[in-house]
């Protein structure tokens, strides 16, 4: 049986972009998703290139866009300063540029985000039973989209990020203080990335100890890895890896075990709302950077509760 003949073209909806007989507001969803994705893309790109105001002296707040800070100018940096391989022709150094590719790659190759941007940005299809702008189509059967099969490798990195950001969320509740209990601010660099003129080499460069506290910013910084965990541990690739690849869970030759079944069931549970986790975690990771940035710039307080 060959493909249907052209007789179907006589149907009144015709073909071409937007052609449909649907009467509902099918365009609202794609516009909303496109607005959210593009807003995040523009903001996160801008924020990643700033290289400043991503941490707050006197606190342990660190923007999730800049974590882990392998090289950088904050006390969070594993190596203080700029990497030697950063060339002059490159954009001004920013710690985020070294690491953001991994979480970005995770979201780019995510099965949910693929649906979201294929529909709302690539318009292929913009909505179900609505005409498309292009006739040619290769799907994920050819380059470049066939590369999206590497999603599981970004997943491995994303799992590491969940724990790194979880650590950041916990230490955000630990406020560095001097021996006399005053806020510790003797840092070599300012939040702008410039050298701190008040930096005193004769004073301790580490806080005497930390006190537990809580603020709006610290709560957002712990909410972020929680949502990220809900998103990451509901990943379709993880669902496959932990048990979906098995045809049975009864144990014995070739079968998965009870542990496989429980792991697969847990990931499946999170996976049912993967889109919600994906979008919530996207919004909150952006919000976390906005809040840290505004506090670091002195535009707002961190709304410290205690």
């Amino acid at each position: 049986m060959n493909q249907p003949s052209a007789t179907t073209a006589t149907l009144p909806q015709g073909s071409g972009f937007g052609a449909t007989m649907r009467k509902d507001n099918w365009w609202i969803g794609p516009i909303g998703i496109a607005a959210l994705l593009l807003s995040f893309l523009i903001y996160s790109t801008w924020a990643a290139f700033q290289g400043a105001y991503y941490w707050v002296p006197g606190t342990n707040y660190l923007s999730p866009f800049y974590s882990p800070e392998i090289w950088g100018h904050s006390p969070h940096a594993f190596i203080l300063g700029q990497p030697g391989f950063w060339q002059s022709w490159m954009p001004p150094f920013s710690a985020a540029l070294l690491i953001l590719g991994l979480p970005a790659g995770f979201r780019l190759t995510c099965y949910y985000y693929r649906k979201a941007y294929y529909r709302s940005i690539w318009l292929d299809p913009v909505a179900c039973a609505v005409g498309e702008p292009r006739k040619s189509y290769w799907g994920e059967n050819a380059l470049p989209l066939i590369l999206w099969n590497v999603h599981r490798y970004f997943l491995y990195a994303a799992i590491v990020f969940v724990f790194l950001l979880g650590y950041d969320g916990i230490i955000a509740h630990m406020f560095p203080v001097n021996a006399d209990g005053t806020s510790f601010t003797n840092v070599q660099y300012l939040a702008t990335g410039a050298e701190n003129p008040a930096f005193d080499k004769t004073k301790p460069v580490e806080a005497h100890h930390h006190v537990f506290g809580m603020s709006l910013v610290s709560l957002v910084l712990i909410l972020n890895p929680l949502l990220l965990a809900g998103y990451t541990f509901g990943c379709h690739s993880l669902r496959h890896i932990v048990g979906g690849r098995k045809d049975c869970f009864a144990g014995g030759s070739g079968c998965g075990t009870d542990l496989h079944f429980k792991a697969w069931s847990f990931v499946s549970f999170l996976n049912r709302n993967h889109a919600t986790w994906a979008m919530l975690s996207l919004v909150v990771v952006g919000l976390a950077d906005v809040l840290v940035r505004l506090v670091a710039m002195g535009k707002i307080s961190d709304f410290r509760f205690f």
């Binding site: 099965y111 693929r114 649906k115 294929y118 529909r119 292929d124 299809p125 179900c128 039973a129 189509y137 290769w138 799907g139 994920e140 059967n141 050819a142 989209l145 066939i146 099969n149 599981r152 379709h236 690739s237 669902r239 496959h240 979906g244 690849r245 996976n271 049912r272 993967h274």
Partner: peptide, 30 residues
């Protein structure tokens, strides 16, 4: 590989089979 998982099949299924998440994506992963 031509499937780009836009989930219209799941949306219209009168039996509410989660075709994309429970059939196509697991097969793509295999």
């Amino acid at each position: 590989g031509f499937c780009n998982i836009t989930k219209c099949c799941t949306e219209v299924c009168p039996e509410h089979i989660t075709i994309t998440d429970n059939a196509i994506i697991p097969l793509k992963e295999r």
